[in-house]
């Protein structure tokens, strides 16, 4: 995919430095978060599909590794949402700057 910068770029409205910073930081943050959660999430179906003995092994009493992993994924979801919200508040402040 080519990202082309057309010649009419000069006619774009000028944006301040805070805005440029917001776009760059937010894009890289979103990309990192999305890729990390997809990778972590797909560990579950991949192991369930291809490593059943590991998933069936018991780690705490009768609780299997599979259940531990599944509950860990739910907690991972909450933690990643919390990280996102914290960072998003910083982006909100940057967005206020950017609108000046």
């Amino acid at each position: 995919m080519t990202v082309s910068h057309a010649p009419q770029a000069s006619s774009l409205p000028t944006r301040n430095a805070a805005y440029q910073q917001l776009v760059a930081q937010k894009n890289s943050f979103l990309l990192t978060m999305t890729i990390s959660f997809l990778v972590m999430y797909f560990i579950l179906p991949l192991l369930a599909g291809f490593n059943k003995p590991l998933m069936a092994s018991k780690v705490m009493g009768n609780i299997t590794f599979g259940y531990v992993l599944a509950f860990a994924e739910i907690i991972m979801g909450w933690v990643m949402a919390a990280i996102y919200v914290r960072r998003a508040q910083a982006f909100d402040r940057m967005a206020e700057e950017a609108k000046r």
């Binding site: 797909f42 991949l46 369930a48 599909g49 059943k52 705490m60 009493g61 009768n62 599979g66």
Partner: peptide, 29 residues
């Protein structure tokens, strides 16, 4: 753990791990 133990006694250890419904890993993914 006690609950899972009861499941195992009643229905077998297979119930505590994957594979009873999704046989084909590709379908699951």
């Amino acid at each position: 753990s006690t609950l899972l133990g009861a499941v195992q006694d009643k229905s077998g250890a297979d119930f505590l791990s994957p594979g009873l419904k999704y046989k084909n890993p590709l379908d699951l993914i």
